[in-house]
C-alpha cells in the first residue's frame, strides 16, 4: 500500500529538540484526525525513541536523528526514528522493562512505553552503526471527510 502522505525530518540530538520532535510528528499525524488520546500515545512513543537516541545512541556526542512518518488511507501511521550512533548489543535485553544502562533517574521504560502505546514496534540495531525504531499505529477512522 502506498502512503497518502509522508514527511522526513532530521534533527540534532540535543535534548531541547525532544519537544520539537514529538510536536512535529503529532502535527503531521493530526491530518488523520486522531483523538487526543491517540495523539498523546504517539507523542509519548516518539519522545521515548528520540530520548533513547540522545541518551544512548549519541551518548557523548551530538549526532543526527532521522525521523520519518507515513500516513495511509486506512488510518495507519508508521513512524521511524533512526540514528547512526553506537547501536545496541542486545536488543532483546534493552527492550526488557526496567532495564537501563543509563543510570541516574532513567526508568528503563522507553521501549515498554513504545510497545504499549503503539500497535507495533520493531527495533533493529547494529553495534557501531546505529539503531532504527519503527512504530505503527492505526488511527480509528471516524466519519470525517477532509482534504
Amino acid at each position: 500500500m502506498k502512503p497518502i502522505n509522508e514527511m522526513t525530518l532530521s534533527i540534532l540530538s540535543r535534548s531541547s529538540n525532544e519537544s520539537f520532535a514529538r510536536a512535529a510528528v503529532a502535527a503531521f499525524v493530526a491530518q488523520l484526525d486522531p483523538t487526543i488520546d491517540e495523539l498523546a500515545d504517539i507523542k509519548t512513543a516518539v519522545s521515548e525513541a528520540v530520548t533513547n537516541c540522545i541518551v544512548h545512541a549519541y551518548k557523548d556526542a551530538i549526532g543526527v536523528i532521522y525521523i520519518s512518518a507515513k500516513l495511509f488511507e486506512n488510518g495507519k501511521v508508521i513512524v521511524r526514528i533512526r540514528d547512526k550512533g553506537c547501536g545496541i548489543e542486545d536488543v532483546e535485553q534493552a527492550m526488557e522493562p526496567m532495564f537501563t544502562t543509563a543510570g541516574g533517574e532513567r526508568a528503563g521504560l522507553g521501549f515498554a512505553v513504545m510497545e504499549s502505546f503503539m500497535d507495533r514496534l520493531r527495533v533493529t540495531s547494529r553495534v557501531g552503526r546505529g539503531t532504527s525504531v519503527t512504530m505503527e499505529k492505526i488511527i480509528a477512522r471516524r466519519c470525517v471527510q477532509n482534504g
Binding site: S19, R22, T44, S47, R106, A107, A112
Partner: peptide, 12 residues
C-alpha cells in the same frame, strides 16, 4: 505531557 522521564522524577 509526560514521558517515562516523569517516572524517574517521581521515583527519585
Amino acid at each position: 505531557f509526560m514521558d517515562s522521564s516523569g517516572i524517574g522524577l517521581i521515583m527519585g
